[in-house]
Design a protein around this nucleic acid. Structure first.
Lengths: 271, 271
DNA sequence: ACCTGAACACCGTTCAAGT
DNA sequence: ACCTGAACACCGTTCAAGT
């Protein structure tokens, strides 16, 4: 209390004054993405306190824990241990667990929505967006569960926007554009959550092929009177590829959307 | 221990012997659905012990709690209080909370899959099944979250089977039947979970209309450069009806499926 | 400003003990 | 066979106290 706090004591007053400005200006210009280690490089002399907490480091650690141990693996205590602090420290940077999960999902989905490479056709662009989400959830199954548990607007909106632009490019009439984009949107998120549920249902160890084989065998043994259809597609259940089926579903919706399209303006007019 | 257990003591030996058979035979024939109060009516004399625990009473109470207080409202302690017992008693009839949630979801979805009324067209039959699931989730939002967290096979399979039969009726080639049924299936479950998420996001009090108006206003104020599409459909977001949009999505998929259909066999053959 | 860690309220689940 | 309820292990979250 009464002790002099050594070397940093001399800078204290100056720091107090600049602390407020930091997050809004200097941090933003020098490091767009990292809000983190900037703190250490600010005066330019030392690198100490690279281990300081920050929202980014917390979210990154959360993603690590979720990837490693699944949805049940993310705990404020485990996270605190991983970051070598107490659980209370995390609450200074993150409001609660919900916000943490949302931020983690956001981090994982951001890359899926990052590049806007020009595709040959609107259909291909839609498939690219859809597969981006699919693959992100495939790599991080826990993110699928969180999908629209309310991932923060920007990331989700960016995906929706990208789908919608292609819908416009497909010459869908204005009145039907929302419907078309929403249908794709619902399907994409739906499959994402479904895959998350599948991943959660089986142990992290068991692979998909074995699970499908088991389910397929069950379907093949169903009562022929009650389940005539399901029995006949038992083989297709066993042999199907999740990603391909997902794409096939996208194509079915695109097929339906194409019948909504207006005739091309500069083409020959039918009467 | 040493005390005589009064009137029921005389029947004990006989009951022991029949107890095993009961659940497999007598119960099944007399009461197909209720596994519950049968216990009281078995000897035909008294109605006492109607308040005895049973899997059905527990699941019913769980549905009540979930409907009344949402997903957070279901607690073994709250459930036990509701049933006037201790939490431990429930575990005699139900393995764990997951099984309880699955059973509750199953109970709520069963009615949606119950009647198999003959519809005019396969398309209408598919719409009927889809709306059955939609309305069930609409009435019990918590059930949407559980959808294929692994609802027990019978209920889910029955829905899948019903969709598949109509796919067959639409003359979809065998090789594409699984894909077509799975796409509908994924879309239906996807929207169900989405609705559950929507319901969870907003307070039980706030109505949908107000929430849509707020979101619509946000969309309308988005940056025109970054979100040209989303801005233009802000009005459609405000005015749309969830149920109609859901149906429109089903119709888009049906449109895509129709293009897979084989030409009708007894019709004129095209060359 | 930011971190620490004990403490609070509350879970799901178990289990010896009862009837 | 079925029920009781205290107890266990573990959460998310808070908050006075530190630096």
């Amino acid at each position: 209390m009464v002790m002099v706090i050594s070397s940093i004591e001399g800078r204290t007053e100056l720091d107090r004054a600049t602390l407020e400005r930091r997050s809004s200006t200097q941090l933003g210009t020098t490091f767009q993405i990292c809000q983190d280690e900037c703190m250490a490089t600010e005066t330019g002399d030392t690198r100490r306190r690279t281990d300081a907490l920050s929202r980014k480091r917390i979210v990154d650690a959360a993603v690590e824990l979720l990837d490693a141990a699944g949805e049940g693996g993310l705990t404020f205590r485990a996270l605190a241990a991983h970051l070598k602090t107490g659980p209370g420290a995390i609450y200074w940077h993150v409001a609660n667990k919900d916000e943490l999960l949302t931020a983690a999902t956001d981090a994982v989905l951001t890359h899926a929505t990052a590049a806007d490479v020009a595709e040959d056709t609107p259909e291909e662009a839609i498939r690219a967006v859809a597969l981006g989400v699919f693959d992100a959830v495939d790599a991080h199954p826990w993110a699928g569960t969180q999908l629209s548990g309310a991932p923060s607007q920007p990331t989700m909106l960016r995906i929706f926007e990208r789908l919608g632009r292609q819908i416009q490019a497909l010459s869908v009439p204005t009145a039907a554009q929302f419907t078309a984009a929403a249908a794709l949107w619902n399907y994409i998120l739906g499959v994402g959550r479904q895959n998350a549920a599948n991943a959660r249902a089986h142990e992290p160890g068991t692979d998909r092929t074995a699970a499908l084989a088991t389910a397929s065998a069950e379907w093949a043994n169903l009562d022929p009177i009650e389940y005539p259809f399901t029995r006949t597609v038992a083989d297709q259940l066993r042999d199907h590829d999740d990603r391909e089926e997902f794409l096939a579903g996208i194509n079915l919706i695109l097929g339906g959307i194409s019948s909504l399209a207006l005739p091309v303006v500069d083409g020959p007019t039918r009467t």
